[in-house]
Design a protein around this nucleic acid. Sequence first.
DNA 1: CCTCATAACTTGCAATATGCAAGCCCTCGA
DNA 2: TCGAGGGCTTGCATATTGCAAGTTATGAGG
Lengths: 162, 162
Amino acid sequence: MTTREQVSAPCPIGRAVGLLGERWTLLILRNANLGTTRFDAFRSELGIADNILSNRLARMVDAGLLARVPYRDGGRPRHEYRLTAAGADVLPVLHALAAWGQEHTKPGEPSAPMQVIHRACDHATAPSDICDHCGEPIRREDELWLRPWRSAEPFPLAEPVA
Amino acid sequence: MTTREQVSAPCPIGRAVGLLGERWTLLILRNANLGTTRFDAFRSELGIADNILSNRLARMVDAGLLARVPYRDGGRPRHEYRLTAAGADVLPVLHALAAWGQEHTKPGEPSAPMQVIHRACDHATAPSDICDHCGEPIRREDELWLRPWRSAEPFPLAEPVA
DNA sequence: CCTCATAACTTGCAATATGCAAGCCCTCGA
DNA sequence: TCGAGGGCTTGCATATTGCAAGTTATGAGG
């Protein structure tokens, strides 16, 4: 059974793994949630080979995780890969992975931990769907990611396309 | 970069994907959380090839997700693979995947959805860390999985080893 | 108008990972 | 002593990934 044959399994975990569990897919979604939209931005951020990236983006578009939308860059026609609602809804999976990774693994180089900033209460919390300061569910628009190994500034999440 | 080189990435999501994102690993953990412990039970439940299963189990033991514990089966020495605390802590990832899969994918054959039964309030909820009936966090011991395509009876989660 | 640069791919081929089938080892129960 | 598992390992075929080079389209600069 290949990973993609899992997509019609009776178990929703199996189906989710069938779509999200291929190599690179979750990392592409992580970066897409942080605002990356262009082919070579994904390539340089992830260090993925072009043919694989091309293949994954196409499959993710087919699966409805990303939308390929044309736009103009100074007159030139280009296209970018924007999150769909299904792609944005992977956020809780990313939270759970981040929390697990933080709890059970160590980075090669020590660094300050990833945190989520909840704009509604202006406090930092561990990656989660729920603010551990105010106890409220964190709405996507109120969520910023602080990843100190990349930047001292917290980063807002990308908005999905309609 | 191979999946396993990700394990020392600065990003906790990258590290988690490095350990959990290999093919079969999350499915093995799903079944281990449902109580599967033996080589050929995993094999027959998952339909995974023996050499791959052997390889994955060994890596998961190295990674501290499972513990290989000897036991006696009617006098015969055997060993089983039991969840560690780190393996049990993957539960929120499984919840998030189940919820996403239920929301955004369809099974090949229609069937009733997976539900979590919260013993503390005796109500069914969608797969989640929090009961959507009583609003309380669901403790592992109070959680049963109802997967109607497998059995009409809800199933308790396996206890991790100390 | 010609050249160059760039984004976004595609193609060819080598290296890994996965799958299938067969075989091995150990122990118990008959 | 023999046979039947469980729990692997080994060999070989297929599929997936990675790297490097080539392709296409467009627009900016000369």
